[in-house]
Every structure is written in C-alpha cells, then in structure tokens.
C-alpha cells in the first residue's frame, strides 16, 4: 500500500480527490457570496459609489447603472455573478478599466513569492528554535527563545518593516526600499513576514514535540538506545508536524490576499493591495475576482495539507476514503 496515494489505491485516490474538489467548490461559492453580500449591504447606491466623489452627470450615473446591471434585482445579479465565476469570466474592473484576470495575473506572482519565501524562512527558524529546545532540554535558551517568539508575534508587521528598512536599506544600503526587482527586493518583506510568523510556528511545533516526547514510544526508543537527536527528528517530529502543517496551510491561504500591510510598507505588488483598493472603490468585479482566486488557492492548499497528513502519518490515511 502506497502512502503517497490517499486511501492507497488510484481508485480511492480519485474518490478522495472528487470529494475534496466538490468541497472546494462550496468554499469558493461561499467566499464569493460573502463578498457579494458585503458590498451589497454597505452601498446604498453602488453606481454612485463606483463614481466616487468625482463629478457625475445623470447620463453617467445611468450608464454605470446599466453596466452594473443595477436595473436587475439583487438575486439575479448574484446568480449572474456566480455563473460567471464558475465559467472563469471575472469581468472588467470599474475603477481600473482593465480585465480582472490580467490585474490578478500582474499581482499574483508577487504575492506568491512573498508568502512562500516568508513562510519558508519562518518554518526554518521555527523548526530550529523548537527542535533545539524541545523536551525540557536547554531551559535557559528555551525561555529566551520563547520570549522572543511572543514579542515578535505580538508586534505589528509595519513596525518590523520600518525597522528593517531603517537598518538594512536606509543605513546599510543593502536592499532597496521599494520597487527593486529580483531576489534583493524580496529579502526585507519576506523577513518581515517571517518575523510575524515564526513565533506561532515555533510554539506549535515545540508543544507538539513536547507531547510526543512524553509518549510511551519515546521512552521505548530511548530504552533501545536511540540517540536524543534521532528520537527527536525520526520519531517525535513526525507527530509534531501535523499541527504545524495545518497552521502553515491556513497561513498561505490567509496571506495570499492578506499581506496588505507588508505590501504597502515595501511598496510591493500584491493581491492584498489590489483587494484593499477595490474594496474602498466598491469595485465588485475585482473584489469577487481576488476572493475567488484566493478561495481556490485556499482550497488547493487545504487539499495538499490533507494529502500531507497521510504522507507524514500513514495512520490518518485510514480515515480517507
């Protein structure tokens, strides 16, 4: 039985995938519905909101009404929108007058780079910190690292961002403040994100390791003469990884369109800023587009996480089917 296929056989794997995909569709529909309701409830007259505080003639207002299909009842507009989302037609932005797909395409890779790099750095730092101090070893170091983790987790991202900029960009001139290209422009934003994330990651992993090390199998392994390091990495880590994988999966989904503070401080491209601008401008097609794309990404990441459960701990695979 292969642990790489959910359920062990191609047949069960296909069934597993089909179930996940239908759940994902529900997640996407729910997210889009929430976005639609949110904008629908906060605007008395979306046509006026789209036009903003700028001059508007009755003809212009009428034209925007027609474009937004505001002459139709809300439920019809909702169904139209859901239909378009599931056929992949995200429409054109009111504010930016560009196709939503191309807007998302421009911003998505910057978001992905930031999230992947930030989480990767956070995972490396968190694992080092947790493994070095798990199971009651090195109590002084453990207390110190734990304190750092709490402080960083509690500090706002923009403060870290400005701090890093102040030292590494304004003083040492090592990295560009904004607008740079390539890996150099990614370092400070990714570090800022990692500083936000590594605290919770380390805490979760360390707690998991502590629990695993108290299990009877750990004692057995030690009695058989397994070294501490081997026990940690080979046995305890497998147990402790599950909650961390869950947490990082959730983080990827949340940050794809939620890293707006970091994107703003570093003047970076990203879905977060695109979404924030669209919300203030009541640009429904862009809001729905970004929400859809993030919901799909979230669903895909959740699937990967579920699949990883089975790989990391084959016992969880039994429940799949």
């Amino acid at each position: 039985m292969s642990t790489w296929l959910p359920g062990g056989t191609p047949r069960t794997a296909a069934r597993w995938f089909a179930r996940r995909a239908s759940l994902a569709a529900i997640v996407v529909a729910g997210a889009v519905t929430a976005a639609f309701l949110g904008l629908e409830l906060t605007a008395d007259d979306p046509a006026l909101t789209v036009l903003g505080t700028t001059p508007r003639t009755p003809e212009l207002v009428e034209q925007v009404r027609a474009e937004l299909a505001l002459d139709k009842p809300a439920w019809q507009r909702y169904l139209l929108m859901i239909g378009r989302v599931f056929t992949g037609d995200l429409g054109t932005s009111h504010q930016l007058q560009q196709p939503v797909w191309s807007l998302i395409g421009e911003q998505a890779s910057a978001s992905a780079e930031l999230v992947v790099a930030g989480i990767a750095v956070a995972l490396v730092v968190a694992s080092t910190s947790a493994i070095a101090t798990a199971g009651g070893r090195r109590p002084m170091l453990r207390a110190a690292l734990s304190a750092v983790e709490h402080v960083t987790a509690a500090s706002p991202a923009f403060w870290f961002g400005l701090l890093l900029l102040g030292v590494f960009s304004f003083r040492l001139h090592l990295f560009p403040v904004a607008g740079g290209t390539g890996p150099r422009a990614l370092v400070l934003p990714a570090l800022t994100l990692a500083l936000e994330l590594f605290g919770p990651f380390a805490q979760v992993l360390r707690a998991g390791l502590d629990t695993a090390l108290r299990e009877p199998f750990a004692l057995t392994a030690r009695a058989r003469g397994t070294t501490w390091e081997r026990l940690l990495v080979r046995h305890a880590l497998r147990h402790a990884l599950l909650p961390l994988v869950t947490l990082s999966g959730w983080t990827v989904g949340a940050l794809l369109s939620g890293a707006v503070v970091i994107e703003t401080v570093f003047g970076r491209q990203g879905l977060g800023r695109l979404l924030a601008t669209a919300i203030t401008g009541h640009d429904l097609p862009v809001v729905v587009g970004v929400v859809t794309v993030s919901a799909v990404a979230f669903a895909v990441v959740s699937m990967v996480v579920d699949w990883l459960y089975g790989v990391i701990d084959p016992r969880t695979g039994e429940a799949i089917g």
Partner: peptide, 17 residues
C-alpha cells in the same frame, strides 16, 4: 515608484534611493 508609507518614502530620499 509608489511608496504609500510616509516613513519609507522619506527614507528612500534620505538614503539616496
């Protein structure tokens, strides 16, 4: 370039960027 944050934008000038 577009740097919305006042401190970061000012830092770009002071640091010669």
């Amino acid at each position: 370039t577009f740097i919305p944050e006042d401190g970061a934008r000012f830092g770009a000038l002071v640091s010669g960027q």
